[in-house]
Design a protein around this nucleic acid. Structure first.
Lengths: 236, 236
DNA sequence: CCTGCCTAGATTGTATACGATAATAGGCAT
DNA sequence: ATGCCTATTATCGTATACAATCTAGGCAGG
């Protein structure tokens, strides 16, 4: 095997299915891979210097998470959520996240509040930076905030559900988001942490709901499904 | 390969990964496969007359659902939820299902109430039957009731989350359930449907919460994790 | 010039082959 | 008899090979 001049081989890193999955996942969530992009097994495989076997495993996992669609005999594509899916994703978030933050508010400890504040600081830093990479990092950071709250509950299952919802939200925002101001108003995150610190459970809950509403309000879901498909065809 | 006297070969049905996954899933949920049972790739493959490739795909998917654990270089085993996991599963159900039934209560229509009543009738029929197969069908039916409610919301994502929670609940009940009376009190299901029919959202919500509490109360989670592993070793 | 069919190439679906790792059994020393 | 070590075996991890399917481009007919 030509282990000479490939970056992957240079670094001598051996990629497993898990790492491929994570790498693709991150690329999708940070929107470096546009929705609809085809993920050819060969191409991805040669990128990571692994056989199609591992790539397939990674793609199947991502398909289960809803981040890619695998069409039989056609291949895997970065998911392209329909308007209906987008609505369901946010409807689910509205159902779950208030419960999550209630649970988190009960369990939260000082160290965890400090961690959240650090995340906020990181977000602010990125907001003030400019450039594409900073924007991408900001997207991820704003999602990570919601995930950090889910992590506080100590409930691994809930955390995984949130992982999925946040990842898919990122796709929806990529497709239907209007303002460039990525996903989350940073201030709202801050207000939520303030409420958590005061152990004001109801406020935190209400703020979270309003926050989700704001995110969704920034979407343009009026587009008819047909129009979406047409645009899709043009993009491909 | 002795392709002569296997039922799979006789029926000449071609199994795909999806069908293998579903078959295993059903077997696990109906508790025909005890928690801890090893699912060897070779064995499963020869059972379905397919190569390990497809079996692996199915097992990976089930692993993602939390129904099997895959241990590196050791194989896949029917999941054996710890007490902590069991608590998380039910904690998550308590968080989500009230929201689900609230959403369902809003969207529900007459035809769907009728469908639910049919499910109840089916449950009752099975309760009155005796025999192992009837018990297994009853287990599945009682879970299907919760899934049917989730389906009413029309939210595919929520439905999938519930699929996972119900399936894993079945495992937990298999491990820690005390009374033989499987999982759900049938009466409670009926009361919930009654409340739904009256559009009494709050009652339905409260009943559901109480119902989940009852299911969990029937568990014996005092068992130390160590004891569980010991029993596991004996069962194998 | 456009439309429909047909062949060639590319891509996925599945099976198999080989290498790596962990479980197991047997022998040896204590 | 017991405990440790080693050789064997079985199972998993990954790559590759072959079959099936889809896509694209060209050619003939209208």
């Amino acid at each position: 095997m030509t282990s000479a001049n490939f970056t992957a081989a240079e670094n001598a890193i051996d990629f497993g299915a898990q790492q491929i999955r994570d790498a693709l996942r991150e690329a999708i969530v940070e929107r470096r891979l546009a929705p609809g992009t085809k993920l050819s097994e060969n191409d991805v495989g040669s990128l990571f210097n692994v056989s199609r076997t591992l790539v397939r495993a990674a793609l199947q996992a991502l398909a289960y998470e809803g981040l890619v669609n695998v069409e039989k005999n056609r291949g895997a594509f970065v998911a392209h959520p329909s308007v209906a899916e987008a609505q369901q994703i946010f409807a689910t978030r509205r159902l779950i996240e208030p419960s999550v933050i209630r649970d988190a508010a009960r369990h939260i400890q000082k160290a965890e509040i400090k961690d959240l504040r650090e995340l906020l600081a990181q977000e602010e830093r990125l907001t003030n930076q400019r450039g594409a990479t900073a924007r991408r990092a900001e997207i991820k950071a704003s999602g990570d905030f919601h995930l950090a709250i889910a992590a506080i509950t100590g409930n691994a299952i809930l955390k995984r559900f949130m992982d999925e919802l946040i990842a898919r939200s990122s796709l929806v925002i990529a497709l239907y988001g209007q303002s460039v101001i990525s996903s989350c108003g940073h201030n709202e995150h801050q207000e939520i942490v303030d409420a958590l610190e005061k152990k004001d459970v109801e406020s935190a809950c209400a703020l979270m709901l309003k926050h989700i509403d704001h995110i969704e309000a920034d979407l343009d879901l009026r587009t008819t499904k047909k129009g979406g498909d047409l645009r899709d065809a043009l993009q491909l």
